[in-house]
Design a protein around this nucleic acid. Structure first.
Length: 579
RNA sequence: GCGGCGUUAGCUCAGCUGGAUAGAGCAAUUGGCUUCGAACCAAUAGGUCGGGAGUUCGAAUCUCUCACGCCGCGCCA
């Protein structure tokens, strides 16, 4: 159910009957109390075009539009707005339909195969805060797309290849020769990397040995490959631990690292050469891109093969496009990386399209995000200026939540405390990020995300548990409320809640199109606020509430809980029965 | 130099298919618990939507320009 789409459809019909079929159909949500739940704003522009009085045009449209079933009142206001007041009973009917539907009334979209490339940590090191945004924003978008009926192919484009591995493998080899177990040696990747780097910089012969390992690795040497595989396996399991802690759906099976494309890189170059797209320049293979030329006409340069014959990430990304198009049959690809790579992906798309590496109608959508800043508006770092390990950040969130829970309920059971701290802490970190516009930098601030007030995860989690307690109090088991009772809407607060509940589809559709989870966050926050207002104004279990009002309000409450639960689940945030 | 992104309340952020009086939260002030959960609600105060120009009946939203900030621009990813 999408109210706005329905209204657009009805107005389009009316405009067509009036032979204004090509006129735009601007239907917007009402922005002011008393000015309708929705408004049609097309009369003014049409009047301008036809050189007529806008209020007359509005009156004509109002006569032609068929909304008797959904609207109780249509009125012309101001210069020619048509304000639409929806029928409470129609809203009630829609709520009942949605409440008795396992998808909560959200329609399935026409199915696409969507490749989503996200998280993509570098396996040479541990995941740090820089990977947080890609991981959780990507995962929220993935879950939303799946809910809307799409076939999603998660692709974790991990950094598992490159010259740095020579040094790491040489160091690992030495450790294994000293009878250390790989898992133990690699238990702290940061330390391991640092040790290897120190040896590389200062130890006689180690740098040469490292370079030799790179050559052997690239040459497919069996011993080196198994050493590499060993390293990668351990490193991936580190990432898996973080994913699990983060409540993110990525697993080992979604790993499609850079190395997976190695065998295709030469083919990519060959094809680019054959098609005359890349040319040799200063010893390297480059693609000149006139579309991105500067004002003097100098084309942008995109290097696909180094002068020494080596490949770059551009080559790998082109190979990935071929794989996703040809093997995964992608209709659409979403890539979540930081905004600094915007130019690279723009160029990659242009080159890939010229080379025919993807179908013309295939969508290729780079979804950039801004940096995570500290409270001082500088990149988020440790006190000493180092990068913050993601596990440390998450553990701190859980620890802070733990303290907070203890101050509020000192007598809580240890197991409950542990569970709650985890859900609150992780939820707070994720929501603080997800609720902000993806594209800009954002300020990471423990105090505001864990103050648990305002637009935060705990507020939403609280709203959910508060509803659960209504049902506990009413003696109704979870999900056991009958949905075939009559639903009557009389109070303003009831109507406002019903309307908000029916706008879930809009939020999800925008999220799916723009890959912007903050739209869903805003929706859920507004829903929770509207519910709190409703609950304040409309008693449910108190003395003197009529049977029908009680049943109706319980149904609204139940559906609110279901929508909150679904929405939070799509964002990867857990709920609880009490808190 | 060229290009991308950004600049909205003291702070953190929404709003940008052009629509009526620009919204939240935090912080500030005030009111509401002999409990349907106060991690809540209600109210007050807080704005040259970076500056300027243009398009338009109408601009935070579109165009141009300037300022400031961040980022990127041939062999890192």
């Amino acid at each position: 159910m999408n109210i706005q789409a329905l209204l657009v459809e009805r107005f389009k019909q009316a405009l067509t009957e009036l032979s204004w079929a090509d006129a735009p159909v601007p239907v917007a949500k009402g922005n002011r109390p008393g000015f309708g739940d929705y408004q049609f704003n097309g009369a003014m522009a049409l009047a301008k075009k036809l050189k007529q009085n806008p209020r007359d045009i509005a009156a004509t449209i109002l006569d032609a539009v068929k909304l008797d079933d959904v609207a109780e009142k249509l009125e012309i206001a101001g210069p020619g707005f048509i304000n639409i007041h929806l029928k409470p009973q129609w809203l009630a009917t829609q709520i009942k339909l949605a409440a008795s539907n396992e998808r909560l009334g959200v329609d399935i979209q026409s199915k696409q195969t969507v490749v989503v490339d996200y998280s993509a940590p570098n396996l040479a090191k541990e995941m740090h805060v820089g990977h947080l945004r890609s991981t959780i924003i990507g995962d929220a978008v993935v879950k939303c797309l799946e809910f809307l009926g799409h076939e999603v192919k998660r692709q974790n484009h991990m950094g598992d290849w490159g010259t740095q591995f020579g040094m790491l493998l040489a160091h690992l080899q030495d450790k294994l020769l000293q009878n250390e177990v790989a898992e133990t040696a690699l238990s702290d990747l940061e330390n391991f990397y640092r040790e290897a780097k120190v040896r590389f910089d200062s130890e006689e012969g180690f740098a040469d040995k490292s370079r030799e390992y790179v050559v052997r690795l690239q040459g497919g040497d069996g011993e080196c490959l198994s050493l590499w595989q060993n390293f990668i396996d351990v490193s991936i399991s580190h990432s898996e631990e973080v994913y699990e802690k983060l409540n993110v759906t990525l697993t080992r099976e979604h790993v499609m690292g850079e190395s997976a494309y190695n065998k295709d890189l030469a083919n990519v170059i060959t094809e680019l050469k054959e098609k005359g797209i890349s040319v040799e320049d200063q010893g390297a293979q480059v693609v000149f891109i006139p579309e991105l030329a500067d004002k003097k006409g100098n084309p942008a340069v995109y290097i696909v093969q180094k002068s020494g014959g080596g490949y770059l990430y551009a080559t790998t990304d082109l190979a990935a496009i071929r794989y996703r198009s040809n093997v995964l049959n992608a209709n659409r690809t979403l890539i979540f990386t930081d905004a600094r790579q915007a130019l690279h992906f723009k160029q990659t798309e242009i080159v890939a399209r010229k080379a025919g590496f993807m179908n013309e109608q295939e969508q290729y959508q780079h979804c950039p995000f801004g940096m995570m800043l500290g409270k001082d508006n500088k990149p988020f770092k440790t006190r000493t200026g180092g990068t913050v390990k993601l596990v440390d950040l998450l553990d701190e969130a859980i620890e802070r939540a733990n303290k907070l829970v203890l101050t509020r309920s000192p007598d809580i059971e240890p197991t409950a405390l542990k569970e709650m701290s985890h859900k609150l802490g992780i939820g707070a970190v994720k929501y603080a990020d997800l609720s902000k516009n993806r594209t800009t930098d954002y300020v990471f601030d423990w105090d505001s995300m864990l103050s648990f007030e305002g637009n935060t995860a705990p507020y939403l989690q609280y709203a959910y548990t508060r509803i659960q307690s209504i049902f506990t109090k009413a003696g109704i088991a979870k999900g056991k409320l009958a949905t075939d009772n009559e639903l009557v809407i009389t109070e303003d607060a009831e109507k406002a809640l019903a309307l908000q509940l029916l706008q879930l589809t809009d939020a999800l559709q925008i999220l799916a199109k723009e890959a912007t989870p903050h739209v869903l966050c805003t929706y859920l926050y507004e829903l929770a606020s509207i519910f709190m207002r409703f609950y304040e104004a409309c008693p449910i279990l108190k003395e003197g509430v009529s049977g029908s009002a009680k049943q109706s309000r319980l149904m609204l409450a139940q559906h609110t809980a279901n929508v909150l639960s679904l929405g939070l689940d799509l964002l990867g945030i857990e709920t609880m029965q009490s808190m």
